[in-house]
Design a protein around this nucleic acid. Structure first.
Ligand SMILES: [Mn+2]
Ligand SMILES: [Mn+2]
Ligand SMILES: [Zn+2]
Ligand SMILES: [Zn+2]
Lengths: 156, 156
DNA sequence: TGCCAAATGAAAATGGTTTTCAATTATTAT
DNA sequence: ATAATAATTGAAAACCATTTTCATTTGGCA
């Protein structure tokens, strides 16, 4: 379950952040997206209704939301950064479609045992771990199959 | 076991790359480093003996080596990119010390089963996965403890 | 209503990386 | 060995996402 718009606003208020029109806009855009968004994409969506929010504000707001643990941040395959409203509130990992950008939250982190083992084996104090899967989602697989069929020219 | 200098040269020759003095230098630097190196660090080390190799060549050579699977590439905590001569030749993961930059190769990837399971659960064709651990290595832990002791002022 | 710290945004700076293109060079063919 | 040629190099400029600066505006509170 994602945070609702109201959840987010009240969390921000609680932490002493001001609720500005720009921030409301940005939160709404993130709210209504099922896929991750780059800062540039957020900018575009926020400004499609000519609200005139600057890129700087997008960056600053995303950073603020990330610090408040309200969004997930991750590295896209192209090196850019993507943001998505945090759906499972706890620690979790992501599966990305590298065709359409769909992001699946992997609700359970199955790596605790492995992480602990590695720590014991190496003597490291392990503070963080990242696990990210990329591939092709069912929808994009279907689309590719369809394209291939028509290219080969199935005679029915 | 890392690739030797000769291994690397002959692999490059086999794939039709020219063996230039610049490339020899860069490979030697990577060879002789036990830690990961950023392009900037490679540049510095290559040029400390005034060989005059340009940054552009560093980038291009690292890219070439990565394509040939001769180096490991990974994201440092600060967003930069690090390179390290590939030690275990097969697919593997990394454990980084975020104090001193030490990199440990985790020889076995224990994630095949989990990855397969996620694929089955989601219908994705999973093509890649990344798993990266960061923490503090034993050496840096020791250093921190020593520093703390002397700060507190142990009276012996 | 007025105050003020926080927030905004235009513009410039940053910094890592990539592109361009003319000059150089490693390798192959003669 | 020499010439031919395609790959490589590197200086300079371009790129581009992100950050910084700083003057102006504004949300939230007294
Ligand atoms: Mn998520
Ligand atoms: Mn490695
Ligand atoms: Zn997809
Ligand atoms: Zn360390």
């Amino acid at each position: 379950m994602s945070y609702t718009y109201k959840d987010i606003i009240s969390t921000l208020r609680r932490t002493g952040c001001k609720i500005t029109p720009q921030r409301r806009q940005i939160i709404k855009v993130l709210q209504s997206s099922t896929s991750h968004l780059t800062p540039a994409e957020v900018f575009e969506k926020v400004n499609c209704n000519s609200s005139g929010t600057g890129m700087v504000t997008i960056y600053r707001t995303l950073e603020m939301l990330e610090k408040a643990d309200l969004v997930c941040r991750f590295n896209l395959n192209n090196g850019h950064t993507g943001y998505l409203i945090r759906r499972p509130h706890q620690h979790h990992h992501h599966l990305l479609c590298n065709r359409c950008g769909l992001v699946i939250d992997l609700e359970d982190c199955h790596l605790e045992k492995l992480v602990k083992q590695v720590g014991a084996d190496t003597g490291f104090t392990i503070t963080e771990h990242s696990f990210e899967l990329t591939g092709i989602c069912p929808g994009c697989q279907q689309a590719e199959n369809d394209a291939r069929s028509s290219r080969v020219g199935i005679s029915t």
